[in-house]
């Protein structure tokens, strides 16, 4: 009897210790993040207090006049191009692979490769894009090339996420649609896509929030350290009211701006870098929050 209670006590102790270790592990991650954000806030807050100047003026050689206008507009334009190209391509590819493609060695190979591509270091994509867009197609660095580069980077993530979402739909739904006389396309359009929208949106937004923080591939393709002008406006006051010259403009993005400031000889610019870092964190966190909200909303609407 004594033995048993000792054994139980021993196992309970084990349990307790594991809990402590687990909690510590969690704490390391959380504490680092909190420390980072607090440090950025302390350094960057004076600038963010003057957010009008900081958000709406270009980077300058004077630290307290220096802002991130070109950087965040550049980031936004690049992300727009990335979104508009990566989502249709990624979702299309995923639908083909999941619903149409025959399962054979070749598609297996493609599958494995797509999963591997999702883990390839981003600088590799930069080099690939430089070769593809720069040397092969003769395009110079521009918003369009930047956006396309990042869309290459996040395509595999979107494909994987979309396939997961499609796979999670019960087979019975497909069979029910076919039984009602729907074609394959009708089944996909009216059933598969709406039901997997939550998964697709989540995957896309998380991929985009990875892309918004990317620096290396954009530096490789020649994103600028400093640009004087904003990209031309996409809407004009006269017909046809739209112009696409902004796609051809030079640009810089938030992480590159941060990087430039941390390398500046004047230590005062470290505060600007910290403030830009905070803006970037807010950017990413709000995108992740959007992903959570979208997923929650779509799940609520689903009634099988």
């Amino acid at each position: 009897m004594n033995d048993v209670s000792r054994l139980i006590a021993y196992r309970k102790r084990q349990d307790w210790w594991f809990q402590i270790v687990g909690a510590l592990c969690t704490l390391v991650g959380v504490a680092t993040l909190v420390a980072l954000i607090v440090k950025l806030m302390l350094d960057g807050l004076p600038l963010l207090m003057r957010w009008r100047v900081f958000l709406f003026s270009n980077a300058s050689y004077m630290p307290d006049e220096s802002g991130i206008l070109m950087a965040w507009v550049g980031s936004l334009c690049v992300m727009l191009v990335t979104f508009l190209t990566a989502v249709p391509l990624g979702v299309g590819a995923a639908i083909y692979l999941e619903e149409y493609a025959k399962k054979n060695r070749f598609t297996d190979l493609i599958e494995v490769n797509i999963s591997n591509l999702a883990g390839v270091p981003s600088i590799t994509y930069g080099l690939m894009a430089l070769w593809l867009f720069g040397y092969l197609l003769g395009l110079s660095s521009s918003v369009l090339v930047g956006g396309l580069t990042l869309s290459l980077l996040i395509l595999p993530i979107i494909i994987v996420a979309t396939r997961e979402a499609l796979r999670s739909i019960p087979q019975a739904i497909r069979e029910a649609a076919y039984a009602a006389g729907a074609t394959k396309w009708q089944t996909i359009w009216y059933h598969m896509l709406p039901y997997s929208l939550g998964g697709i949106a989540t995957g896309t937004i998380i991929a985009m929030s990875r892309a918004v923080g990317e620096t290396a591939p954009l530096i490789v393709i020649g994103a600028a350290g400093w640009v004087s002008n904003l990209p031309p406006s996409p809407v004009t006051s006269h017909a046809p009211f739209l112009n696409f010259r902004w796609l051809n403009a030079d640009f810089t993005v938030l992480p590159i701006q941060m990087f430039t400031w941390t390398a500046d000889p004047d230590p005062a610019f470290q505060a600007n870098a910290a403030a830009a870092g905070l803006v970037l964190i807010v950017f990413t966190l709000s995108m992740n929050a959007a992903a959570i909200i979208v997923r929650y909303r779509v799940r609520q609407k689903l009634k099988w």
Binding site: N58, S60, Y61, G222, A224, W226, V227, S228, D250
Partner: peptide, 16 residues
């Protein structure tokens, strides 16, 4: 470049 741009905002400049 920044000072130049103040008087010549029509010129798009890129410094890397």
């Amino acid at each position: 470049a920044q000072e130049f741009n103040k008087a010549n905002s029509g010129v798009a400049m890129k410094v890397d």
